[in-house]
């Protein structure tokens, strides 16, 4: 799916990164725990989160997320958007909750970044 299709599906507002909406996305990672994003998110995946602070943008830069989707209708502070502009990371905001957002994307062919976690440091791929 492209980010544009995702934005339509989630009835999401594009807060920044309009010019990247034709980016093709295959994977996503949903979390409010940024340590898990650092541990498991794949390059090119979308970060789906309920957090809004500027750190989510820095994390997205570190793991090469293609976009951030903020859920539960939250509006991030201006500094988050400014930083996202600076680091070229599109940010979308949807009113759907984390579960609904993830489910809608999954039903449309977006998959997760890892399968199961078997034990400390051991991940079973999808």
């Amino acid at each position: 799916m492209t980010l544009r299709e995702i934005a339509n599906l989630l009835d999401a507002k594009v807060l920044t990164g309009e010019k990247y909406l034709d980016t093709e996305v295959k994977t996503a990672f949903s979390a409010d725990l940024m340590s898990d994003v650092l541990a498991f998110a794949k390059p090119g995946s979308i970060m789906i989160t309920g957090l809004t602070n500027p750190q989510i943008v820095r994390i997205a830069n570190i793991v090469d997320n293609s976009a951030i989707i903020i859920v539960r209708g939250k509006t991030p502070p201006d500094e988050t958007i400014r930083l996202a502009e600076e680091l070229d990371i599109p940010v979308l905001s949807t009113r759907y909750i984390l579960f609904e957002t993830s489910g809608k994307l999954y039903a449309n062919g977006i998959i997760g970044c890892v399968g199961k976690i078997e034990g400390p440091g051991s991940v079973v791929p999808l």
């Binding site: 979390a31 409010d32 725990l33 940024m34 340590s35 898990d36 994003v37 650092l38 541990a39 989160t49 957090l51 602070n53 750190q55 989510i56 994390i59 400390p120 440091g121």
Partner: peptide, 12 residues
């Protein structure tokens, strides 16, 4: 609040 502090850091 920042999305850290779950005891994953050093392990990661």
């Amino acid at each position: 609040e920042m999305g850290f502090g779950a005891g994953m850091g050093l392990f990661n």
